[in-house]
Design a protein around this nucleic acid. Structure first.
Lengths: 340, 340
DNA sequence: TTGTAAGCGTTATCAT
DNA sequence: ATGATAACGCTTACAA
């Protein structure tokens, strides 16, 4: 009872050979009598087969692990779908949610080194020094989805989300907006930082005045945080007598929150204020008004990552590849009114 | 090149012992020189470690596989989250998307029998005779989430979604609606069948007239299918001069579709027509008007399933358990107007 | 630090 | 149909 019973024990308990026990349980060739005896013995001593040992002998398919911060995030879901589809013939894909723990991806690498998978796709929120080191030393192939500072030799797909913010601003300017605010994401996250920079770049390029009161930071990438931040933004604008005719949001969820807040303030979208999101979630087209959003092509990024991993399985010595995916602007009602 | 290189080959190529090769790659105790030599050899012959063999030796954690029809479905996402949380200490959880293939869960059982996991949680869309047989014969523990006909001895969590539909109808009747229609799900799916029956039961109980034209069947559980079905429904109602003041929908996505269709027809929700969903997705509270929906408590079902599996790991001989989760009605604006 | 050899729990091969 | 035994690819005492 103390230690996990093995097939050996089952065989002993049933008074038969280990080979017979194996056959009886997997139903190859065994007499009905044998099957009864063995199954009974197995049950009585609480035997459960060891998947790993079986897989070793049977030579199953490769196991690929996909590590994400939050499995509820539609981006990751899209990536997962694409990865699974792309790797369908090659491997089983399993997702592991890391939460927003400091060491997120690191723990995962440790798991992997325990034999949890033959390959790894990660989407790190923040790339620490320790993580870079772990990646460098890893024996199992890793593909990183996300921006990486130069100098790390690893397969990598990324999208320039600074560019994404700039596309949103450009679009707003073309649509005649000039008093543009932004709801940023948390400063200590990669997307938060990068998109903030993109906003500043675009505003400078268009020579639009950045007014402190028009920029706020959401505490999270969620709907609730969006409502809160947008409320803060609109209150401040009102209090200071500032102008505002557009809000760029760090992602779709936050943008939907902003839509709600605008409604609370009695503002019409897009007549009074235009709103843009990033990610082009399903939500963007489902919501009313439908949300103008910049697609970061999560599916494409997932697909490319999967291809990289597959290629590496086939030729482990090939040099690491880096590939960029271009964002795309999807114009909808929240910025131009009568789109359908 | 033909066959996958093993550590044995690496050692041979580097001219060292297999043990040294292992140590050099995993970085235990090896001279810098040894590490260089081995890593080079490994790269040159294209060696990749075998996760299974490692796991066998290292005794990693249990692998639990969660099989779902569609990983994009928020219900499954919620379940997965709960399962992962519940099993955090016990096992790694991996999701496998089966698609809507005929043999969905069967294939999964075959994978499992190849050693892909130590335990299985499945959410079968349809329970075929073959699946029942496979479940009965399986040596690895299985938990089924979903309604099951009696006679199958297996751990099982379910929710009575017929009851869920009835709760929706009851609520609408209490709110003064009497001409109630329903958008059903595909007839060849379990939820489709069960919810259809629930609707008929409730309508009979309230002695409300079921009019053929007020019931339509969506081809899928998606938003698009909802728009299409609702359009069909509203056209028919209009053409026949029928009355309609409420639409019960087979799930939230379809309900959102119905909301859009109603808008197209110039109908106000809930003034002209009330709409209900099932699942209580995030979408339900995000959408405007927010959607009255019956929660099927996916998280709770996931949690219970995970507990059952854990309990079975601990005592494989315990008798199978069946547990029911009760649906809950969440009233929002799409049926009563001024809810916030 | 390095090599030798013994498993990890299972299934497949070969006799019987 | 059953039993003995050799793998599967790797890590780790133990000895050198």
């Amino acid at each position: 009872m103390a230690t996990k019973p093995t097939l050996h024990e089952v065989a002993a308990a049933a008074g038969v050979s280990q080979a017979s026990a194996s056959r009886a349980l997997t139903g190859r060739s065994a007499s009905p009598d044998m099957v009864r005896k063995v199954r009974r013995a197995a049950k009585s001593i609480g035997y459960l087969p060891d998947a790993t040992a079986r897989a070793l002998r049977l030579g199953g398919r490769r196991q690929v692990v996909f590590g994400v911060a939050d499995i509820g995030n539609p981006n990751y879901v899209q990536m997962l779908r694409a990865i699974e589809e792309e790797l369908d013939e090659t491997a089983n894909v399993s997702v592991t949610a890391l939460g927003r723990r400091e060491n997120q991806s690191l723990e995962l690498l440790r798991m992997i080194s325990m034999g949890a998978g033959d390959g790894l796709i990660i989407t790190p929120i923040q790339v620490t020094r320790a993580l870079r080191q772990a990646i460098r030393e890893s024996v199992v192939p890793i593909v990183v989805i996300g921006r990486l500072e130069p100098g790390l030799e690893v397969d990598n797909v990324f999208v320039d989300s600074s560019e994404a913010v700039q596309m949103a601003v450009d679009h707003l300017v073309e649509a005649g907006r000039s008093h543009i605010g932004m709801i940023h994401g948390p400063e200590n996250t990669n997307p938060g930082k990068v998109r903030r920079a993109g906003f500043h770049t675009a505003m400078a390029r268009h020579e639009l005045s950045r007014v402190a009161v028009r920029e706020v930071t959401a505490t999270d990438f969620t709907h609730a945080a969006g409502v809160e931040a947008a409320t803060r933004l609109l209150s401040a604008v009102k209090a200071e007598g500032e102008q505002l005719d557009a809000i760029v949001c760090v992602n779709d969820l936050v943008a939907i929150g902003a839509l709600h807040a605008a409604d609370q303030f009695g503002l019409k979208v897009p007549e009074d204020v235009a709103v843009t999101g990033i990610d082009d979630t399903d939500l963007a087209s489902l919501y009313k008004p439908s949300l103008t959003s910049v697609s970061l092509h999560s599916d494409e990024r997932g697909r490319v990552a999967a291809q990289m991993l597959r290629d590496r399985f086939e030729d482990p010595s090939r040099p690491p590849r880096k590939e960029a995916v271009q964002p795309t602007l999807k114009i909808r009602s929240s910025t131009i009114g009568e789109a359908r």
